[in-house]
Design a binder for these strands. Sequence first.
DNA 1: ATCAGCATGTAAGGCGTTACATGATTCA
DNA 2: TGAATCATGTAACGCCTTACATGCTGAT
Lengths: 177, 177
Amino acid sequence: MAREKRINMVILGLLSHEDLTGYDMKKRIDNSISFFWNGSFGNIYPALKELEDESLIKSSNAAVGGREKIIYHITAKGKKVLKEWLKDEQASNELRYETLLKLFFGGGADRSTAIHNIEIFEEKVSQDLALLKMLSKSLEDCLDNDDHLYYYLTASFGVETYEAYLKWCAKAKKMLI
Amino acid sequence: MAREKRINMVILGLLSHEDLTGYDMKKRIDNSISFFWNGSFGNIYPALKELEDESLIKSSNAAVGGREKIIYHITAKGKKVLKEWLKDEQASNELRYETLLKLFFGGGADRSTAIHNIEIFEEKVSQDLALLKMLSKSLEDCLDNDDHLYYYLTASFGVETYEAYLKWCAKAKKMLI
DNA sequence: ATCAGCATGTAAGGCGTTACATGATTCA
DNA sequence: TGAATCATGTAACGCCTTACATGCTGAT
């Protein structure tokens, strides 16, 4: 059995909680996991077809308020595949930071350029950190629910690392002045 | 002028320090920037052709010890393109952590699976952190050289974030037990 | 002799993004 | 009435990885 691609696992994961349309999956991804995983329509819709062909999900048409939707739900087989993926030790964790690349090759320009690039990065990180902190705080109150606990832990990962980023930014700027 | 792809910038960046063969570029990438950027032969060699077609680099054949090599060096035009990229504020910083994805959807399996996945992540991070710390330490002594300073700062980024990862791992495991 | 490492490349596929195309509905 | 959002999709391309193919050299 060939290894499923990750977007398929994201879809199965989302559907293991609730039935969703492709459009709603995109929203869920944007709102809750986008800081460590992304999805796009050009990515999601073909994956939905693929998953349905493999009988891991099933679709049903619905007309909500006169507008037609395709709502998907996960099958027993889909749940099994999701679980197998969760139990698989292999996991690719990739960091691709162009900002670090630019810093590494900083000698090709002047120090002020390097500092400026760090500041742009810092700004973005600060903004994202503020959001993650709010999310994290709001989840703190319902850790008795397992799903909320898992959600909290990923948000918390973001908070910890983004705080480390900011600490590093300050140090790096100091050393470059 | 179309935006050059990043592997091209990596190559220009490396060549701005020293002339290299494609093979050596791969080694440099693996040894110094692989924790935030990767390269592969299937990636590098076609890029070299492209860059030479654009006159950003120039090749010269050499026979070192009877073995033939193609050594590349950067042109003035290449240096200009590198500098433009460094000054461009746009930078894509992507984190794609399958481990976090599995944790987020942890409800699909049991807690011991989630803990196990975190432990595997922790193990890998510990190993990489040890390497980064050594590198960082060895660079601390020559920060007067700008290139070493830039190198040090990227290594230092790795140290800070990996330490934050480990801190998070400990906390997450505690909460999952 | 054999095996690790040097050295260059190609082919196929993975996996994703962006832009485009279409049309309905809701709200100001 | 016009803009934002809902909703589904396709096409083209970006960019990388993996696996394959080839052959030399240096050390044991």
